[in-house]
Amino acid sequence: MNVPQGQFPDESPDPGRWLDDHGDYLFKYAVFRLRDNTAAEDAVQETFLAALKAYKEFQGRASERTWLVGILKHKIVDHFRRAGREAPLGEESDEGPEHREFFERPEPWQGHWNNDYAPNEWHATPAELIERSDFWKVFNDCLSPLPQRTASAFTLREVDGLKSEEICEILSIKVNNLWVMLHRARLHLRNCLELNWFRREQ
């Protein structure tokens, strides 16, 4: 049997050490997706409680952190499910800003990019962006003005790579709503990244 170094299958669980070793990481992972400190703290606590119960099944099969993150993902989804049931999507404004001003132009060009908001060339490749340590900070700051559910839907889609149908089921929304939310998040985020980042550097 393959036992990862330093982990013994019959070792008794030590939740105090889990908290010290992984508490901050799990919290950041959760708060990034839930965008709510209290909900993230609850998710971390529930994760450790579930981990205690499921410890026998774990038995050093994966790294401890990967195992805990796996449980946390379920707790995050549970939170969204509850929130989706309690507060169904109402007004259209819940989906996020439309940013009509991006396309305000005198006729006959109404509906085409306004010069002030039109995209510029970024001169950046994903490989360069991946190297940047402040990427998540800028990303997160740019998402924060959006409605919580839109920001969460966008994160589930673009960061975690969940399928449209899965996100709709988790958030209790229709696929058309999801597409509007994702579109508005992209419109907003792209512009914000460009303003705060690419234009600043020139």
């Binding site: 508490g23 990481y25 950041k28 992972y29 990034f32 703290e41 971390v44 900070k137 990303f139 997160n140």
Partner: peptide
């Protein structure tokens, strides 16, 4: 690890 949340882990 999303290290962006300035120094903030669990309170």
């Amino acid at each position: 690890p999303p290290e962006f949340i300035s120094g903030a882990g669990l309170s």
